[in-house]
Simulated assay, not measured.
Amino acid sequence: MRQIIDAHIHLDHYQDNEIELMMKGLNRIQCTNIISVSFDLASCKRNLELANQYLQVKPAFGFHPEQEFPSDSDVGELISWIDKNKDKMIAIGEVGLPYYLRTESRSFRLEGYIELLESFLKLAKRWEKPILLHAVYDDAPVVCNLLEKYNIKNAHFHWFKGNAATIERMIKNGYYISVTPDVLYEQEIQELVKIYPIEKMMVETDGPWPFEGIFSGKMTHPWMIHQSINAISELKKEEVTSIYETLYNNTKCFYGI
């Protein structure tokens, strides 16, 4: 069986007709579940609706860092809502630090985002929930510091990019990463796959984010994960059936599906 799980997708960002078609086709491509991450409070609510509508959808609730910082009242309302609905979520996410937003402005202030992330980390620890992270390049060591500070082990860095020292640190700490379809054509991701233990790896689409190469012009869809796994198999020089089984079981175990 070549079953898959999409470990990170923004299902609520698709059009309604796209969602319906995607969900109808999941069985055909042997995709048993998708982890749908949230962007803000409205996104959390929409993902909960989708999870109630489709059994395959497992929602994560959080605040995506690559956007304007929320007001205190918005943060309070979001965390209060998540608290009331924590038993309905599979993880806290997507949360992290705004690397790409910060590179657009030299005057950008990071402090509030770190404090907000700490709030989510404390909740993940208290509720014993996995945390799904947006933390790349220079931000990844900062997030590693925080994970170590709060002794959080169940951390998933989605679409990770970073230097060799950070990769070594993440491997030592047992953190998970997930690989997107750009593993077919991005050397940086290919090198990461070669280094990172397959036992700490998952696969994702981060849809509806678009991809290039053979995926150019196509709506991002979980079927692309099969292509990713073939690429991972070649990079790892391991039998593809074994790669399928390991990645699938990794995701099931990490998220308690």
Score class of each variant (00 low, 15 high):
192 L>D: 15
100 Y>D: 07
41 L>H: 02
31 C>Y: 14
183 V>T: 14
43 S>D: 02
213 G>Q: 12
44 C>E: 05
110 L>K: 03
96 G>K: 08
82 I>W: 04
238 E>N: 09
64 H>W: 04
227 Q>E: 12
158 H>P: 03
91 A>Y: 06
19 I>N: 06
161 K>G: 06
132 L>T: 01
197 P>L: 13
139 D>C: 01
90 I>S: 07
209 W>Q: 02
106 R>T: 04
185 Y>N: 14
230 N>L: 13
161 K>W: 05
114 I>R: 03
28 R>N: 11
36 S>P: 07
116 L>S: 04
198 I>S: 10
215 F>H: 11
243 I>R: 12
253 C>P: 00
104 E>S: 13
166 T>M: 08
138 D>S: 00
21 L>H: 07
137 Y>R: 05
251 T>S: 15
217 G>M: 10
181 P>L: 11
12 D>M: 01
186 E>N: 15
228 S>F: 03
236 K>D: 14
106 R>W: 03
13 H>D: 05
16 D>Q: 12
144 C>I: 06
161 K>L: 14
95 V>Q: 03
98 P>A: 09
26 L>F: 14
26 L>G: 03
176 Y>K: 11
254 F>K: 03
10 H>Q: 02
209 W>I: 13
15 Q>M: 09
85 N>S: 13
162 G>W: 06
198 I>R: 13
10 H>I: 09
140 A>T: 01
166 T>Y: 07
225 I>P: 10
252 K>P: 09
27 N>G: 15
158 H>M: 01
151 N>K: 07
104 E>R: 08
234 E>H: 06
201 M>Q: 08
97 L>F: 05
229 I>T: 13
53 Q>V: 06
256 G>W: 09
197 P>G: 08
56 Q>P: 04
81 W>N: 04
99 Y>E: 05
98 P>H: 08
114 I>Y: 03
140 A>M: 01
199 E>Q: 15
178 S>F: 12
46 R>E: 15
59 P>Q: 10
78 L>P: 10
200 K>M: 09
17 N>Y: 07
139 D>G: 00
97 L>S: 10
240 V>C: 07
237 K>H: 14
210 P>M: 11
240 V>M: 12
136 V>M: 00
186 E>F: 15
202 M>T: 11
197 P>Q: 13
256 G>M: 11
49 E>M: 07
58 K>Q: 13
198 I>P: 04
124 A>N: 01
54 Y>K: 13
128 E>Y: 00
127 W>E: 03
53 Q>C: 09
30 Q>I: 08
242 S>Q: 15
121 L>R: 01
96 G>F: 02
22 M>Y: 12
181 P>K: 14
176 Y>Q: 12
72 D>P: 00
73 S>F: 02
